[in-house]
Structure formats: C-alpha cells, structure tokens
Amino acid sequence: HNGKLCKLKGIAPLQLGKCNITGWLLGNPECDSLLPARSWSYIVETPNSENGACYPGDLIDYEELREQLSSVSSLERFEIFPKESSWPNHTFNGVTVSCSHRGKSSFYRNLLWLTKKGDSYPKLTNSYVNNKGKEVLVLWGVHHPSSSDEQQSLYSNGNAYVSVASSNYNRRFTPEIAARPKVRDQHGRMNYYWTLLEPGDTIIFEATGNLIAPWYAFALSRGFESGIITSNASMHECNTKCQTPQGAINSNLPFQNIHPVTIGECPKYVRSTKLRMVTGLRNIPSIQYRGLFGAIAGFIEGGWTGMIDGWYGYHHQNEQGSGYAADQKSTQNAINGITNKVNSVIEKMNTQFTAVGKEFNNLEKRMENLNKKVDDGFLDIWTYNAELLVLLENERTLDFHDLNVKNLYEKVKSQLKNNAKEIGNGCFEFYHKCDNECMESVRNGTYDYPKYSEESKLNREKIDGVKLESMGVYQILAIYSTVASSLVLLVSLGAISFWMCSNGSLQCRICI
C-alpha cells in the first residue's frame, strides 16, 4: 500500500475532517465546509473527530445509520420544511452556546429548535410527501429539559409530546424532565432520530412541544462500492481501485494482509504473511546465498510486491572476458508455465471484495464479540484455502523447474562428451581453451567436438587428477538461474548478450 488516501476510480472521497457522521448530518456549525458535499467514492472519518452533536445527546440507531450510509455515493440536500413558512405559530430561531460559531450562539444547520411564540405553543402538524424518486433521509430531535421551569419557559406545556409517523415508522416521544450533570454547559439533553422515507411515502410530524424540527433532508443515491473508513492518512493526487484505512492498494494479487476493511475492488484479506509461490528452483544453499535460486511470486499485497520470474541462460568467462545470454527457448517455456500457473491461482482465488467494518453500540458488546468470532472463522478458512492451494502448486513448480534445468544440462553434456569433466555440482571442467566463438557454439548447439578432442585428450593426460582450476583450465557451469522482474525479464530476452569482463582471468566458464 502507499499510505495515502486516493480517488477511487477517479472519484474523490468525502473527508469529514474534524467532524464525524453525526456532526455532518445534523449540521454542526463547525462542519459548515461539508454542506456543499454532493457525491463521493467513500467517506473518511478520523479516529478522534471532535465535532459531532454540539448540544449533548445521542443519535439513536447511529450504527444502523452508518451502515445505511456505507452504500450511499451521492445525496441532494434540500429544504424539507421551509423555515419561514412551515411554522407560522412558533418561534424557530432557537440557539445555544453549546453550538457556538465564530463566538456567537448558533444551532444545527439542518434542524430548527421550535419554541413557544408569545406565551403559547399551539399543537403543530406538518407533513412531507417524498417526490424525489429515491429514498429521503429525514432527521429530527426531541429536547429533554433539566427542570419543569425550563419546560414551561420554552414550550408552555408541561405534558408535551412529539409524534412522527410514516408508512414504515411510527413513534411517540415524551420529554424526560430530570436533573443531569452539566455537559457542554447544558443540564438538558437532546436525542436525535432518523428514518428513511421511501419514494411516494408521507411523513407526518405532530407536537405540542420539545420538537427539534427537520429543516433540511437528504435524497440518497446508492453506490455499492462506497463505504466509510476511519483513517488518519492524508489525501493525495492519486487514483486506485482499492482503498484501505492504511493506504491505497493497486494490485491484481488475490490476497492482502494490510487491513480487513477495504473499499472498492480489493484482494481478499488473509492473516498469512508467507503466502508465496515459487518460480525458481529448489533451494541450493551456495546459490541461494548469491540470490540466484528460489525466486518467488508473492500473492499477498503487503507481504511480497508483485511476481518475480526466474529465467535460464548461459554465463561464460574466458580470456576475452565474461558474458550472459538467455536461453530463449527454455526461458519462454518457463515463463509460459509460470504465467499459466499464476493465472490459474488468481482465477481460482481472485474475487474482488469490498469489506466494511460493522458498528455496534456499547450495549451490543456481546453481539460485536460474536460477530468478530464469526469473521475470524471465515478469515481462517480463507487463509487455509489460500495456503493449501499455493503449497500444492509450489511442489509442481519445483518439479517443473528441475526438468527444465536438467534438459539444459543434458544438452551441454551431450555436446562436450569427454572434452570436459562433470564435477558433480552442476559444473563441467573443460580440457581445452574455449574462446567466445567456442562458447557461442555450446550455447547454440553447434559445438565442434572433433575440433577440440585432441587438445582435450592431451590435457587429460597431463592433469592426472590435479585440480583443474589450479592448472588454468576452464570450467563450464551447467545450471544457472538469475532473477529478474517481469519487465526486466522481457528486456533481457530482447538482448543477445551483455558482457562482464574479468581482467586477466584465465578461467573459461559457460553457465546455464
């Protein structure tokens, strides 16, 4: 991952900044910058967002509201009850120091605090018919004063009620008058409520006091790749198909172990950190130390980045220098085999997901714990399936590479015959000098055995068991695999060879 928040398929997220979902939807004055928000790819909250409900109280069923919003990608904020005409018999300019803005008392931008007009609070009834052709999110509140005197001074009615009804919602609220500790300079409380109004449905408000009335509502448009994440990451000019709280993932790998919460087309989250597919040879310690064997393909974004291909070729060293050249036929066979294998694994496992966190309130801790156990169970199954699949494929890959290298080895052996000696570690020792032209003939299969047989015969008789390297004779190393990324691999195959001279070296080696 890149540690950044990015656009998702070209669409920017909605960053709530210092506000949370509650503050944004109710219209906390400190969240005025969010009022123009219309569309987004996903919503970003920060872990310690401080601006929620400015007048103390709870947004009821907040967790369910977050779940609903996680599939919303755009909205239209509109005046559901026009301020100047909807409440002619009531005062609608209630403000509070708890919702101060720029040093002055204020109130929510989407709600109206209705109080008595003169000395009376006549029963009010108002309704709205949803003609938007889509779901409408309606929010309101109920004020709970701290004393009967406060109730009387604001609403005149000691036994007030609030009723809200639609086809799918029907509740009646009565204020709970009680002494409470002071929070944000208030002994009173406000509880906030919401409902989704279906197209064509009607919502009716009736009250004799204590109503925090809707002013603006939201017509919602769903987008199934949307979601809500909690993150401290910063926004950058970048684009992605998959976003996590820790950063964007741009990967076609089937798995990731970065974060379980994802938005967009994302690899499946697994616990494993070692889900690797081999593309090189079986481990040979001396070669492995030099980083030549054991190439791997990573299938977990965050564990290993991208696929690494092994390729086969020849390396030689003689009086004229040293050089490398790919054996294109065996390399292409290996590439085709690995590509098919990788595609097979991805096809089997690479279903892209959006995974969002589930919200539970403080009273639902047991449910949250149960949900976590269920999620953990599914996660263990996914991890096991992934590891088992790759384990089985790896064994076949190792066998496949062994065969490829063996074929190259036999190709060289059949040409050199007794003009060189096998020394048991995949290397041959020449009994004759071999210049670049000679080396090329070994690589392309045109090695002239009779041409060098007499010199080889004489050297075999002279050496008589002495280690060949100390006599200045020449080696050919018969097994060799270097490691390159897919891009470098293609470039390498396009070149005939490249040279690395070893000044004054008397050794001649050709490596497979």
Rank of each mutant, 00 (worst) to 15 (best):
N232G: 12
N232R: 11
A233D: 07
S234K: 07
S234R: 12
S234Y: 01
M235D: 00
C238R: 01
C238Y: 10
T240L: 01
T240W: 03
C242E: 03
C242H: 05
Q243A: 04
P245T: 08
P245M: 06
P245C: 13
P245W: 07
Q246C: 09
A248Y: 12
I249S: 03
I249N: 01
I249G: 01
N250I: 08
L253Q: 08
P254S: 11
P254G: 03
F255E: 10
I258T: 01
H259N: 14
T262F: 11
I263N: 03
G264K: 12
C266Y: 09
P267A: 15
K268N: 09
K268C: 06
Y269A: 06
Y269W: 01
Y269S: 03
V270A: 01
V270K: 01
V270T: 07
T273L: 13
T273P: 11
K274M: 11
K274S: 14
L275D: 07
L275A: 00
L275N: 05
L275E: 08
R276S: 12
R276G: 07
R276A: 08
M277S: 05
V278A: 15
R282V: 03
N283R: 02
N283A: 00
N283T: 06
N283C: 03
I284V: 02
S286I: 10
S286T: 11
I287V: 14
I287E: 06
I287T: 02
I287H: 11
Q288A: 11
Q288M: 02
Y289W: 09
R290E: 00
G291M: 03
L292P: 05
L292D: 00
F293A: 03
G294Q: 03
G294R: 11
I296W: 03
I296F: 01
I296H: 04
A297W: 14
A297I: 05
A297E: 07
G298T: 09
G298E: 10
G298S: 05
F299H: 06
F299K: 01
F299E: 05
E301C: 07
E301L: 09
E301K: 08
G302H: 02
G303C: 04
W304N: 03
W304H: 01
M307I: 07
M307F: 02
I308T: 12
I308K: 15
I308R: 09
I308W: 04
D309W: 10
G310V: 02
G310P: 00
H315R: 12
N318Y: 05
N318D: 12
E319T: 05
E319F: 06
E319W: 01
G321N: 12
Y324N: 03
A325E: 00
A325D: 00
A326K: 08
A326W: 01
A326S: 14
D327W: 03
K329T: 11
K329V: 12
K329E: 13
K329Q: 15
K329Y: 08
S330G: 01
S330V: 01
T331H: 14
T331R: 06
Q332I: 03
I335S: 01
N336E: 06
G337P: 00
G337L: 13
I338Y: 04
T339Y: 13
T339S: 13
T339G: 06
K341D: 04
K341I: 04
V342S: 00
V342D: 00
N343R: 12
N343A: 05
N343I: 04
S344A: 15
S344I: 00
V345K: 02
I346M: 12
I346Y: 02
E347S: 14
M349Q: 01
N350P: 01
N350K: 10
F353A: 13
F353H: 05
T354E: 01
T354I: 08
T354Q: 11
T354C: 10
A355D: 00
V356T: 08
G357A: 06
G357R: 15
G357F: 09
K358A: 12
E359K: 14
F360N: 09
F360T: 04
N361A: 14
N362A: 13
L363T: 05
E364L: 06
E364K: 13
K365M: 06
K365L: 14
K365Q: 07
R366M: 06
R366A: 08
R366V: 05
M367F: 14
N369Y: 07
K372N: 14
K373R: 15
V374D: 06
G377F: 05
G377C: 05
G377K: 02
G377R: 04
D380S: 15
D380W: 09
I381M: 12
I381F: 15
Y384V: 09
Y384R: 06
Y384T: 06
N385M: 08
N385D: 13
N385Q: 15
A386P: 02
E387L: 03
L389T: 07
L389H: 15
V390I: 15
V390T: 13
L392Q: 10
L392H: 03
E393D: 13
N394V: 03
E395M: 07
E395Q: 09
R396C: 08
T397I: 07
T397K: 03
T397Q: 04
L398H: 04
L398W: 08
L398I: 07
D399S: 15
H401Y: 06
H401T: 15
D402V: 07
D402I: 02
D402T: 06
L403R: 12
N404Q: 15
N404R: 01
N404W: 04
V405Y: 01
N407W: 06
L408A: 04
L408D: 06
Y409W: 08
E410R: 04
E410D: 15
K411G: 13
K413P: 07
S414V: 14
Q415G: 07
Q415H: 08
Q415D: 01
K417N: 12
K417P: 03
K417W: 03
N418Y: 12
N419C: 15
A420Y: 15
A420Q: 01
I423H: 12
G424Y: 11
G426V: 02
G426W: 11
C427S: 03
C427H: 03
F428I: 03
E429G: 10
E429I: 11
F430N: 06
F430I: 01
F430L: 09
F430W: 06
F430R: 07
H432L: 11
H432P: 09
K433V: 12
C434I: 05
C434N: 07
N436Q: 15
N436P: 12
E437N: 15
E437Y: 03
M439G: 02
E440K: 05
E440P: 02
S441Q: 09
R443D: 02
N444C: 08
N444V: 07
T446M: 11
T446W: 00
Y447V: 02
D448Y: 11
Y449D: 04
Y449T: 12
Y449F: 12
Y449L: 13
P450K: 13
K451Q: 09
K451L: 15
Y452Q: 14
Y452F: 13
S453V: 12
S453W: 12
E455F: 12
K457H: 11
N459V: 10
E461C: 00
K462I: 10
K462Y: 12
D464C: 15
D464K: 12
D464N: 08
G465D: 02
V466Q: 11
L468W: 07
L468F: 04
L468M: 07
L468R: 04
S470P: 13
M471W: 10
V473E: 10
Y474D: 05
I476P: 06
L477G: 00
L477S: 00
L477Q: 07
A478D: 09
S481T: 09
T482L: 12
T482Q: 05
V483C: 13
S485D: 15
S486H: 08
S486P: 02
L487R: 11
L487T: 13
L489W: 02
L490V: 13
V491H: 01
S492Q: 06
S492W: 08
L493W: 14
A495N: 01
I496A: 13
I496Q: 01
S497I: 00
S497E: 01
F498A: 11
F498G: 08
W499E: 05
M500A: 14
M500E: 04
C501P: 01
C501G: 02
N503M: 14
N503S: 14
N503R: 11
S505Y: 05
S505W: 04
C508F: 15
R509P: 01
I510W: 01
I510R: 01
I510G: 00
I510M: 12
C511M: 11
I512T: 09
